[in-house]
């Protein structure tokens, strides 16, 4: 409502109290009906609540408002990854808290085909995020939750996953392997799959 104007007099007059309605004042107490008092004080309360609530809601949805960009993370030297093999590697999250403990780490699968031809997979199943297990003998990733299976190139083999494994962008720099990481991949928010 239009709470700006009447508010101070109302408060003052009610503060001075009583029934002493002097006819001189432009806004007399008598002119303020009970309904008016309720409306004005209610509006004031709502305004105060709103002013309080905006930052509090902002606090809660902070993680949405302040997205942290993925960053390049060093996951090892080039020679740590033998050709024609897929290895499980873990690295520290770029966005970690000091009290994160083990959960400040993330694992990924690094598949080196030949030379600088790599694929880096998220361990999170594309179905519902469970950790897929790599079986080098059959060249399959298997998920323990709902039985999703992927081929060694990350393509979907069978089970409920709607797509292949999420892939990290990677680049090689001075003999080091870097992947762009930093968030939990989900169906609509995959890893940025270009270098």
């Amino acid at each position: 409502m239009n709470s700006e104007h009447p508010t101070p007099p109302c408060c003052n007059s009610s503060g001075s109290g009583g029934h002493g309605g002097s006819g001189d004042a432009e806004v007399t107490l008598a002119s303020i009906t009970r309904r008016g008092i309720l409306l004005v004080s209610g509006a004031l309360f709502a305004l105060a609540g709103l002013i309080l609530a905006i930052p509090l809601v902002g606090y809660i949805i902070g993680p949405i408002m302040r997205r942290k960009e993925d960053q390049w993370v060093d996951i090892g030297a080039l020679e740590d990854f033998p050709e024609n093999q897929t290895l499980l590697v873990d690295f520290e999250d770029p966005d970690r808290r000091p009290w994160d403990g083990m959960t400040g780490k993330t694992s990924c699968y690094v598949r080196r085909l030949q030379g600088e031809n790599f694929q880096v997979f998220s361990i999170n199943c594309a179905h519902l995020g469970c950790p897929v297990h790599w079986f080098p003998e059959s060249g399959l990733f298997m998920c323990p939750c709902h039985g999703g299976v992927y081929y060694e190139d990350g393509g979907r083999a069978s089970g409920p996953p709607p797509r292949g494994l999420y892939e990290y962008a990677f680049r090689l720099e001075k003999g080091r392997m870097l992947v762009r990481a930093g968030h939990l991949p989900t169906l609509q928010d995959t890893m940025k799959e270009t270098s």
Binding site: I61, D93, L184, T186
Partner: peptide, 23 residues
Amino acid sequence: GRVPLIGPALVHLLLGGETIGGE
């Protein structure tokens, strides 16, 4: 994350950050 449009935002709201961790 499967919710149309706001899925990724919901994920971050749920996790309190980019990954599963302290928050």
